[in-house]
């Protein structure tokens, strides 16, 4: 009996020792040197593996960063400035300050604004509907409402609003850009979060001329260029029958919001405007139009006047 035990223990032990020796040599032979800082950097990153930085994951980002040895072109949108600071610290570099961004949905073709003309009965992905037809409301640029962006989001930051049929981005957004990639119609854009989270943008990407655009959707950008004319900071660009507001140049003056005849320009997180202010404005507008004979000198005032004219035509 005892003998059996000894043999068993002995042989198993011998096998163990032999295996350990083999393993040791194999491990030595195939050892790969890796910069320990890669691990450190990876540790500091949020481990979301979202790909928002343009790399396959946090590990790849860390490898790329350590290899490059410079901070230029590297930014983790999820971690933001704090994490980049920390990472820079590990590598003994200085982090650039990157402006925080957020995903913005540039379509307001809700069920009310762009009523359904047909019923889609296919698979529930925008990618498929996009190649199949223009869209339920008839707009071939607008949101298809099948939530590819929601499915792409790893951070639970984008949801469909069942009432409007449009996606809504909430505070969880880390600007990883997954939804921008997922949207087949390029409706979603990453824009700077802005001062006090205030943002102004054109909520439409439609490139049709005014009449057909308006026929499909009451809040479409009709390419009238009123905003372009009123902007004093050259922040608005007109291209393919639509306006685009450059968030770098926009000074959040909100003049364009006022002139837009279709309410296609949205302002976010601004305080509610007081009615009195609006009335005063209207008065001022009347005065301005009365005193129209005076030559306008600066571009700024001419722009303001254009705006007032629009206000007036809208009222009448």
């Amino acid at each position: 009996m005892n003998e059996v035990l000894i043999y068993a223990v002995g042989s198993l032990g011998a096998i163990g020792v032999v295996a350990a020796i083999i393993l040791y040599f194999v491990a030595q032979k195939f050892k790969v040197y890796e910069d320990p800082r890669i691990d450190e950097v990876e540790e500091a990153l949020p481990s979301a593996n979202c790909g928002g930085c343009g790399y396959a994951g946090c590990r790849a980002f860390a490898e790329g960063l350590v290899k490059a040895g410079a901070m230029e072109g590297f930014n983790c949108p999820v971690g933001g400035a704090d994490v980049m600071q920390e990472v820079a610290g590990i590598l003994g570099l200085v982090a650039e300050a990157a402006e925080p961004q957020i995903a913005v949905i540039r379509c307001n073709g809700s069920l009310a604004n762009s009523p359904k003309k047909v019923e889609y009965d296919g698979i529930s992905t925008c990618a498929s509907a996009h190649v199949l037809y223009a869209g339920d409301g008839g707009c071939s640029y607008g949101c298809l409402g099948l939530a590819d962006c929601v499915a792409s989001c790893d951070f639970d930051a984008i949801h469909m609003n069942p009432e409007t049929g449009l996606p809504v981005v909430d505070v969880n957004c880390v600007a990883c850009g997954a939804c921008v990639e997922a949207c087949p119609r390029d409706i979603i854009e990453l824009r700077n979060v802005g001062k006090k989270e205030r943002r102004i943008f054109v909520s439409c990407v439609n490139e049709e001329k005014g009449a057909p655009a308006k026929k499909n959707c009451t809040v479409a950008c009709i390419g009238c260029a009123k905003c372009f004319n009123v902007c004093a900071f050259d922040a608005i660009e007109m291209k393919n029958n639509r306006a685009y507001i450059d968030y770098e140049k926009c000074k959040l003056c909100r003049k364009c919001v006022d002139v837009c005849p279709t309410d296609a320009i949205h302002e976010i997180n601004f305080p509610v405007r007081k009615l009195i202010v609006k009335e005063e404005k209207e008065k001022a507008a009347k005065v301005a139009s009365a005193a129209k004979t005076t030559e306008t000198v600066s571009a700024k005032t001419s722009a303001a006047e254009k705006k007032d004219k629009v206000n007036k035509t809208e009222e009448s």
């Binding site: 199949l132 037809y133 223009a134 869209g135 008839g138 071939s140 049709e208 057909p212």
Partner: peptide
């Protein structure tokens, strides 16, 4: 002019 085709694209 641009006219809608069968899929709704002009």
């Amino acid at each position: 002019d641009n006219v809608y085709d069968a899929s709704g694209f002009r």
